[in-house]
C-alpha cells in the first residue's frame, strides 16, 4: 500500500530526528509543572521569605481545577511546541526539493499529505496521553481523587483540539513555503479564533476554542454534555475539511 509506505517514512523520520523522544517528554513536563508548583507554593513562598507577618489564605484547589491548569499550560506552550515541530514538514521539504523527489513518482498528493497528518497526530496523541496520565497521577497523589474516566474524557476531547492545531499547521504548510510563516499564520489563526469566540460568545456555542471549558465542566459534573459532543464533532469536521483543502491547494501549486 502506497499510503502505508509514506506513513512509515514519516514515522521513521520522526524517530530519527528524535521527536518521538523529546516531544512526549516536553509535554509531560508541561502537564506536571503547574500541579507540582501549585502544591508546593506555600513552601516556595516560605523559602523566598518575603512574607513576614503577611497572612493570606491560599485557595484550596479541586482536582478539576488543577487539571485545568495543565490544560492551560498545554494550550499555550504545548500548542507552540506542536506548531514548531510541524512547521517545516511540507514547507521545508518543498524548499529543499525532497517533495519533488517523492512526488515525481506516481504518488497521490492526498496520500502524501494525509500520511504526514496522521504521523503527526499519532505523535501528538501519544504525547498528550502520556502527559495527562502523569499529570493525573500527580493530581491523585497531591490534590484528591479524579477518576480514570475523567482522564479519558480530557484526553479524548483535548486531543481533538490538538488535532485541529496540527491540521491548521499542515494547511499553512501547503500554502506558504517558509517554515517561519507557517508558525506565524497558525498562531495568528488560533489567536483570531479565540478572540472571535470571546466576542461572539453568545452565538458561537460550538467554537473549537470552547473545548477546554466544556471539558472542565464535564469532569466537574461527571458527565459529557451535548455541547461538548457537538463541539468535538464540529472540530473534527473542520480538521478534515482543512486537510482535504490542503490536498487541493497542494495539487494546484505543484502543477503550476
Amino acid at each position: 500500500m502506497q499510503w502505508m509506505t509514506l506513513f512509515q517514512k514519516e514515522l521513521l523520520e520522526n524517530w530519527r530526528n528524535k521527536k518521538w523522544i523529546w516531544v512526549p517528554l516536553v509535554i509531560i513536563l508541561l502537564s506536571i509543572m503547574d500541579p507540582i508548583t501549585t502544591y508546593y507554593l506555600p513552601q516556595i513562598i516560605d523559602s523566598v521569605g518575603g512574607m513576614e507577618g503577611a497572612v493570606f489564605e491560599l485557595p484550596e484547589y479541586a482536582p478539576a481545577d488543577v487539571m485545568m491548569m495543565s490544560l492551560a499550560q498545554l494550550s499555550m506552550l504545548g500548542v507552540l511546541v506542536i506548531v514548531l515541530i510541524s512547521m517545516g514538514t511540507i514547507a521545508g521539504e518543498r524548499k529543499s526539493g525532497i517533495s519533488e523527489l517523492v512526488l515525481v513518482k506516481p504518488v497521490s498528493y492526498l496520500n502524501y499529505i494525509t500520511a504526514k497528518w496522521v504521523a503527526y497526530l499519532v505523535l501528538v496523541w501519544v504525547s498528550l496521553f502520556l502527559g495527562l496520565l502523569v499529570s493525573w497521577y500527580y493530581i491523585n497523589l497531591l490534590f484528591g481523587n479524579l477518576s480514570f474516566g475523567d482522564l479519558m474524557i480530557t484526553v479524548l476531547f483535548y486531543g481533538i483540539w490538538l488535532t485541529l492545531v496540527v491540521s491548521l499547521s499542515i494547511f499553512y504548510n501547503t500554502l506558504v513555503k517558509s517554515a517561519g510563516l507557517v508558525v506565524f499564520f497558525t498562531i495568528l489563526t488560533i489567536m483570531v479564533m479565540s478572540i472571535t469566540t470571546n466576542i461572539f460568545n453568545h452565538v458561537l456555542d460550538w467554537s473549537p476554542n470552547n473545548l477546554s471549558g466544556y471539558i472542565i465542566e464535564a469532569i466537574k459534573v461527571g458527565e459529557v454534555s451535548n455541547d461538548l459532543m457537538i463541539t468535538g464533532v464540529v472540530t473534527i469536521g473542520i480538521s478534515i475539511l482543512l486537510v482535504l483543502l490542503s490536498g487541493q491547494i497542494f495539487k494546484h501549486k505543484e502543477m503550476a
Binding site: 528524535k18 523529546w22 508546593y40 513552601q43 500527580y138
Partner: peptide, 26 residues
C-alpha cells in the same frame, strides 16, 4: 527546605536529565 517529598520532584529531574542526555548524544 523541609517538607519536600523527593518522590514527587524526582521525575521532573529525571525527565530533564533524559532531555539533556538525548540532546547531547544527538
Amino acid at each position: 527546605m523541609v517538607g519536600i517529598n523527593w518522590a514527587v520532584i524526582a521525575p521532573l529531574l529525571i525527565i530533564q536529565l533524559i532531555l539533556v542526555i538525548v540532546a547531547i548524544i544527538d
